[in-house]
Design a protein around this nucleic acid. Structure first.
Lengths: 223, 223
DNA sequence: CGTGGTTTTGATAATAGTCAACACGAGTGG
DNA sequence: CCACTCGTGTTGACTATTATCAAAACCACG
């Protein structure tokens, strides 16, 4: 999940119902706390997330980490470059995955419909990650956190509405590494939203949206 | 209302007359200061950059801008999502472009080899933009500018070597908007590199690499 | 040569980071 | 059932990095 405007997810439409196809194996279940693959691994499968939440991240040699995206149902993860994964992929919430052979990315694939769906998903990925580049490069901490909460509300339902409970299955470190902030800044910003009455919290891992309009307005600068 | 795009009329006419089955028309020349397309435009063509430099950027409603990437020879620009461009594309240095019909992205394309090449380029794009996410989210101003100079040295030749002249055809504002900094910080950082003897400048738009090893070491934190 | 835009430099401010302490909660064992 | 512990999250005090605002220097172009 990048922070992005929720399009109709074209890949969903194409891929729904493709499971019956002969070269597509059955669904896979993975437990939270496990890893699906690591950076540098050869890519054999792509995965469409049916249920659960994944985390895609990259490490620098000095230990700094960037969370590239959180994978939510409907997302396809595992796009290769030069045959290799270029992120780590870890399971945050136990997931059901639909695997597709990486060979389906080849033009001479035996399943043109699947090939097309994966191509479209890759193009969508490019557009969505560009949204994230925009947020990382240009937005303040307040805007980043507001965008993050709103986009999670979007991905897990119908967007920010009064009373909506939005689960945050990832840790503060994950959120910080995703938004290019520190855990302290993420925490302080959420506290600030809470004290301003835009949200409330049910424990540390559930945001309740109290004032959707004001929260949404924090996503962009008003000047 | 968009600024008129001054395509070479001759090749434009030529392109218009092509049959849909002919995916690869002749090359296009574009002048610097012009725009190739804007965010929201329907995508008819993708372009492979043969010579020149392009700038891909996105705007926020409040006027902030993120430069998503600089396009150098070998790069393919114009990948659509839902049939539309999701960046603006402007010409920084007059360029020669090889256009390909966007229909070549379809699995049933008449040219499977081209289709595969574009698919591979899209996958490469995903990997490369993730590198940029890493830089924007985790790196300091010094690291960002050092990475930027090194990567331009890479793109325009064999990488950082003593005495290599690296042209910076883009403005300081472009660099700043690319790296998520301000022009002042970019300028100060280059000055710092100059005073430390890592680089020298031939005017404001050519970096000369004086100490490639130290410059490269600035690209990552050493701790 | 001017002139206007870009780049650099300087002084100051603000945002976010760092370091440290404390709070909270889930899981464990007495 | 409660106290203990450990990991995670929150808060506070202070610092550092980078942004902002302003002015000077530099260049490209007529």
């Amino acid at each position: 999940m990048y922070i992005t405007i929720p399009f109709d997810r074209k890949s969903d439409t194409y891929l729904d119902g493709l499971e019956a196809s002969q070269n597509i194996p059955g669904k896979t279940r993975v437990q939270d706390g496990t890893s699906l693959y690591f950076e540098g691994d050869p890519v054999e499968w792509l995965y469409r997330i049916e249920t659960g939440v994944l985390r895609l991240s990259r490490l620098l040699p000095d230990g700094r980490r960037q969370v590239i995206s959180f994978g939510y149902p409907g997302d396809i993860v595992g796009f290769p470059w030069l045959g290799q994964h270029h992120t780590d992929c870890d399971v945050l919430v136990k997931s059901t995955l639909q695997p597709y052979r990486a060979s389906a990315l080849m033009a001479n694939s035996s399943d043109p419909q699947l090939h097309q769906a994966l191509m479209d998903a890759a193009l969508q990925e490019i557009s969505e990650i560009q949204d994230h580049v925009m947020i990382l490069g240009q937005k303040s901490a307040i805007e980043k956190v507001a965008c993050f909460v709103c986009s999670l509300a979007m991905r897990t339902g119908t967007g920010p509405c009064k009373g909506r409970q939005v689960p945050l299955p990832m840790s503060r470190v994950d959120i910080a590494d995703f938004l290019g902030l520190t855990t302290e800044t993420v925490s302080r910003t959420l506290t600030q939203f809470r004290k301003s009455g835009y949200i409330s919290m049910l424990g540390a891992h559930t945001v309740v949206i109290e004032n959707p309009e004001q929260l949404k307005s924090l996503c962009q600068r008003n000047d």
